[in-house]
Design a protein around this nucleic acid. Structure first.
Ligand code: ZN
Length: 664
DNA sequence: GCAAGGTC
């Protein structure tokens, strides 16, 4: 086969690796190159097919400066973004190959982005009238050959939906970002980079809400009755009922001391703890954060390194499924020869009948779950740690469920109060031997229904209610996944953008908003509320679906967005917003809250410290009531608790003490 | 210079 065929079809893949896989589905191929860019030639039904690839999007939207701005045109990415210069070699190759092609196949991933990637190339360099779409979900030999034999007409509605996605995000993101920046510039003549968008802004708001919630939290007391009893061995158990009032708890405690305690029910059952499902990127990011403390973004970069080195499959996937076309046995044979053979040995020791993958629920239109290929080469230290995790997870998902024997004992005092005791004993460790997870195993109790149980002691223990948990990069990522915003490729990066803008920072392991982040959040909530909710994404997705099915025109969707933004831009009080942000940044003098740097709202306090003051006034009364203690004692106890919010503590440490001093 | 989305 020659490297300059005539009358050929040009097949365009989304990325070099995918192109190579498509090439390898053919028994014979010729590798060719133009400079450093590679392409391949195969024959299909006797005619030459040239296979080449993009590297993701080669074109992006670019618009004029100024604000508001609604017009943008598609430009080569390497022109817009200097860091994307590497795309030029693929761009040039595809332009050259397109000039003589008689037919085009868009073989990019089968999703709206892939549809746009291929479409833009064929539209710019080739001829859309001669274009077809190849439809597949995994790049296995069988599926590739089937898909090439069953080419679809160009998926123009998918393309339209993809273009609409680009435009909606561009128009919203660019305009609101510029509105914020212009406001600050007009108030201070300073340039600072600010941004807002469909994914980053709801995430920022979520961080703010979480922090305010925790900062205003005042724990409430409640009481449990702890019973020491003899079930063959001495254990502590708690009455099933909690008490809000200390006196009531004390009185119940003294009464049950005199009552007989009997076993009412013993339930025993073997329970399976299912082996994990294969990794999608989100699960990998969560687990590598848990095991190694890697950020989601770092995990994504390391996974990319492993993928480019041929050690794992494509990592930016949402799928938790390994299709039957992937030969799991062969992968395990490969791993047996590699540096992590110790895990395969454990696998062999527990799995007698060969691998059986537990498939997960989540799916992906273009890629299977992440799995090791069985091939190994030298990579960076952290990439190797991640590889180790991926291998363990893969083997665990193909191994056996663990089994524990659970015993639940219900005990009842003669006057009706009940206690529950639960223990478990491990029967089969199964997958937990491969994928480190500790399974607690204790001896079960030797008791039966009707047994009398000796009570060795009863006392009342105070507990306090817990605030909502703070957000970490990992839990924020999970929240984004659950809220269905962002993609595998973008979530980790967008979290880092919030840090880069100095909207958020880490404190005590949790993400909290900075003064700037809080202010941007308030401004967006007031002037561009659409952009602060995850609903914008779900509504956009519904619109895109309508476009995909030909039920709505792309231009109508864009027109509606433009109208909405125009209206909101009109209401945007540039001067006011500029001054508000400038004050929070310390660029303009203003009257500060007694306890923080925010502007005074009333009575010498900012709006958040006023909220804290009101909250404390309300809750200290509940404390006095429940614990039968003085106001002063209640405040003292609230101040001591670690879970009490920061805003509340500010009030106690300053204002409340001053007021008490004045009152005396 | 700003978004979110591909991929390196
Ligand atoms: Zn304050």
């Amino acid at each position: 086969m020659s490297c300059s065929p005539k009358d050929y079809t040009l097949l365009i893949a989304e990325k070099p690796k995918a192109a190579k896989k498509i090439v390898e589905a053919f028994s014979k191929y010729q590798q060719c190159n133009k400079g450093k860019a590679y392409y391949w030639i195969v024959r299909w039904n006797g005619s030459p097919v040239v296979i080449a690839s993009a590297v993701g999007h080669l074109f992006d939207l670019n618009g004029k400066s100024g604000f508001p701005v609604f017009e943008a045109e598609w430009r080569p990415i390497y022109e817009i973004n200097k860091k994307a210069y590497y795309t030029k070699k693929y761009y040039d190759l595809l332009r050259w190959l397109s000039s003589n092609a008689k037919q085009f196949i868009n073989a990019c991933d089968y999703d709206i982005e892939g549809s746009v990637i291929g479409y833009m190339i064929i539209k710019t360099f080739g001829d859309l009238r001669k274009a077809k779409r190849m439809k597949y979900s995994t790049l296995t030999k069988q599926e590739i050959i089937t898909a090439i034999g069953d080419l679809q007409p160009l998926d123009i509605y998918m393309v339209e939906a993809g273009i609409a996605r680009h435009l909606v995000d561009w128009i919203w993101g660019i305009n609101v970002s510029r509105a914020l920046m212009k406001a600050v510039k007009s108030a201070t003549s300073k340039r600072i980079i600010l941004s807002a968008g469909r994914v980053q802004s709801p995430s920022l708001i979520q961080i703010i809400k979480n922090d305010i919630d925790r900062s205003l939290f005042v724990p409430l007391p409640y009481f449990k009755i702890r019973v020491k009893l003899d079930l063959g061995k001495e254990i502590y158990a708690y009455l099933d009922q909690d008490f809000e009032n200390k006196e009531e708890a004390k009185s119940v405690a003294s009464r049950i001391k005199k009552e007989e305690l009997k076993v009412e029910e013993v339930k025993q059952a073997d329970v399976r703890i299912p082996r994990p499902v294969p990794f999608n990127l989100g699960d990998l990011q969560v687990e590598s954060g848990r095991f190694f403390g890697f950020s989601p973004y770092k995990t994504e970069r390391l996974a990319e390194e492993l993928y480019l080195n041929g050690m794992i499959s494509y990592p930016r996937t949402n799928s938790q499924k390994i299709p039957p076309s992937i030969n799991v046995g062969e992968i395990i044979r490969g791993l047996r020869e590699g540096p992590l053979k110790k895990y395969v040995q454990v696998f062999d020791s527990i799995v007698a009948e060969g691998p059986r993958i537990r498939q997960g629920q989540r799916d992906d239109p273009a890629h299977p779950a992440i799995y090791p290929t069985g091939y190994f080469t030298r990579v960076s230290k952290d990439a190797y740690r991640l590889y180790d995790l991926i291998v363990r997870r893969f083997l665990a998902s193909a191994s056996l469920d663990a089994v524990v024997r659970k015993q639940d004992i219900l005990l009842r005092f003669a006057n009706g109060y009940t206690l529950s005791v639960g223990v478990q004993s491990v029967i089969e460790r199964g997958w937990t031997l491969i994928y480190s997870r500790d399974l607690k195993s204790e001896d079960l109790f030797n008791v039966k229904k009707g047994d009398k149980v000796r009570v060795l002691g009863v006392n009342v223990v105070m507990y306090t209610t817990k605030p909502s948990v703070g957000l970490s990069r990992i839990s924020l990522l999970k929240w984004m996944e659950e809220s269905k915003i962002g993609t595998e490729a973008t979530r980790g990066k967008i979290i880092e953008t919030l840090f880069l803008r100095k909207y958020v920072k880490l404190k005590g392991g949790y993400i909290i908003p900075t003064t700037l982040g809080l202010t941007v959040g308030e401004v967006l909530d007031y002037y561009f509320r659409d952009l602060t909710s995850v609903k914008m994404t779900s509504e956009m997705e519904s619109e895109l679906d309508l476009i995909k099915y030909g039920k709505k025109n792309k231009d109508d969707v864009i027109k509606e967005v433009k109208e909405r933004i125009s209206k909101q831009v009109e209401g945007f009080a540039e001067k006011e917003v500029g001054e508000k942000i400038a004050k929070r940044l310390g660029l303009i003098q203003y009257k500060k809250c007694a306890y923080c740097d925010l502007e005074v709202e009333k009575d010498g306090l900012c709006k958040y410290h006023r909220m804290a003051l009101a909250q404390l006034e309300k809750i200290k009364i509940i404390w006095e009531d429940r614990s039968a203690i003085s106001e002063e004692e209640a405040i003292k106890r609230i101040a001591k608790l670690k879970t009490t919010g920061k805003l509340i503590k500010d009030i106690i440490e300053n204002k409340w003490k001053d007021d008490v001093r004045h009152a005396r």
